[in-house]
Computed example of a mutant assay.
Amino acid sequence: MRLLLGLLLACAILPAQAADPRAGRRLAGARCAVCHGNDGIAVQPDAPNLAGQNPAYLAAQLAAFRSGARQQEQMSLMARELTDAQIADLAAWYAAIEVTATVPGR
């Protein structure tokens, strides 16, 4: 229930921020690229790909890590000090990366 409330709150607040993908790119390069890659394609086997994700989803997850509603040792530490604006910028950056998929057998 606490996680759901945190996600709903993040969805209600964070999308209203004027997100700057360029600022998100700079922040991602400094904080996120080691695990999630420079292009949002994970380089660590236990890290998810972030490229092309929905910005509201990304913002909600980062807000949940920041608040403690969602727990994962590394992400909880990384998100703890993020501001709402930084979360919106990161979400905008990763959402702006275009991803293509190839369906097997075609």
Rank of each mutant, 00 (worst) to 15 (best):
R2Y: 04
R2K: 13
L3R: 14
L3W: 08
L4G: 10
L8H: 05
A12W: 15
A12I: 01
P15M: 09
P15D: 02
P21C: 12
R22E: 15
A23I: 05
G24N: 04
R25E: 15
R26I: 13
R26H: 05
A28I: 06
A28G: 11
G29I: 10
A30D: 11
A33S: 15
V34P: 01
C35Q: 07
H36R: 07
G37V: 05
N38V: 07
N38C: 00
G40N: 03
I41W: 01
A42H: 07
V43F: 00
V43G: 12
P45T: 10
A47M: 09
A47L: 03
P48C: 10
N49F: 12
N49D: 14
G52H: 06
Q53H: 09
N54W: 09
Y57A: 10
L58Q: 04
A60E: 00
A63R: 01
A63N: 10
A64V: 05
A64M: 07
F65A: 01
R66C: 09
S67N: 11
S67P: 01
G68K: 08
G68R: 13
G68T: 12
E73F: 10
Q74F: 11
Q74C: 04
M75K: 11
S76C: 03
L77T: 06
L77S: 00
M78T: 07
M78P: 03
A79G: 07
E81F: 12
L82S: 07
T83N: 01
T83R: 12
D84I: 02
A85L: 03
I87Q: 01
A88H: 03
A88E: 01
A88R: 08
D89V: 12
L90T: 03
L90G: 00
L90P: 04
W93V: 03
A95P: 03
A95S: 15
I97Y: 01
I97W: 06
E98I: 11
T100D: 04
T100A: 14
V103P: 01
V103D: 02
P104L: 15
P104I: 08
G105Q: 11
R106E: 13
